[in-house]
């Protein structure tokens, strides 16, 4: 039997190497024995190349998000899954920046990342996916995912614990038969809650039961905003980093999550 029972899980780094270091330090302090990244290393923030060495040096197990697939394969589009023209406009700006600034040498690494991760944690069948187990860019929001739908995903994909990211706002829910679904949020930008911290999940499995704690982490967000401006990244993105409110890519939000935001 494994002695490991505490896992740090995060996603959506979006080039935010400062938050990445802060999250890894926080997870270490809290005794996480393994660390997982659910993908989307690039986008939004500055200096894409800086995250790779941190992930490798700190032994993070990384899977592929839509961004990683697109950058890795040098595709024209981030594959983010937005449907509104305004959302797509801003997504295209941030993708063009990351695509231009990611060294070609990292493309094989991004291309080769696994698209799904499966583990056994104390007999619990764990499934890690980027958006959802069935689609890399599916948004699983708290207010638009019915219990029955989540149960169906767990049934169809043979999992007791499902961990996802992509939508950028963390939440968790226990569904029937003590199964657990956690959206770990994103560490690349705040969660549209007016706080400048970013969120990740610490999952503890004991006695066949999983428990997740969603943890906010502060980092030098003012430095990040300043570097974003120096790199010519749209001002709207820097404002989000400084205020904790999303200013772009809002059209995709369901009514409840939208009502909690400022815009």
């Amino acid at each position: 039997m494994s002695d490991i029972n505490r896992y740090a899980v995060f996603g959506g780094i979006y080039n935010n190497y400062l938050a990445l270091t802060a999250v890894l330090d926080d997870a270490e302090r809290r005794g996480a024995q393994e660390t997982y990244c659910l993908g989307d290393l690039g986008g939004f923030g500055p200096h894409p190349d800086r995250v790779f060495s941190i992930l490798q040096e700190r032994g993070v197990m990384v899977m592929q998000g839509n961004y990683d697939h697109s950058i890795g394969n040098d595709l024209e589009d981030c594959g983010c899954g937005y449907s509104d023209p305004r959302d797509n406009h801003y997504a295209a700006l941030s993708y063009a920046y990351t695509r231009a600034k990611t060294s070609a040498r990292w493309r094989p690494y991004l291309r080769g990342l696994p698209s799904v991760l499966r583990r056994r944690w104390d007999q619990q069948r764990v499934l890690m996916a980027h958006g959802s187990p069935r689609k890399v860019n599916e948004f699983l929001w708290e207010s638009s995912s019915s219990d029955r739908f989540l149960s169906r995903l767990l049934d169809e994909h043979e999992a007791d614990i499902l961990l996802v990211t992509h939508s950028g706002i963390p939440w968790q829910r226990q569904v029937e038969r003590n199964r657990l679904v956690v959206n770990v949020g994103a560490i690349g930008r705040p969660a549209n809650d007016g706080r400048t911290e970013v969120w990740y999940a610490l999952v503890t499995v004991t006695g066949g039961r999983a428990r997740a704690e969603l943890i906010p982490v502060a980092y030098d967000h003012l430095r990040l905003a300043s570097e974003m401006r120096a790199e010519g990244i749209p001002e709207e993105f820097a404002i989000t980093i400084e205020t904790g409110w999303w200013t772009t890519c809002l059209e995709i939000l369901p009514a409840k999550e939208r009502a909690r935001g400022r815009y």
């Binding site: 995912s145 019915s146 739908f149 169906r152």
Partner: peptide
């Protein structure tokens, strides 16, 4: 619909 796991 609920039995079939409908989302929305």
């Amino acid at each position: 619909a609920a039995e079939l796991g409908v989302r929305d």
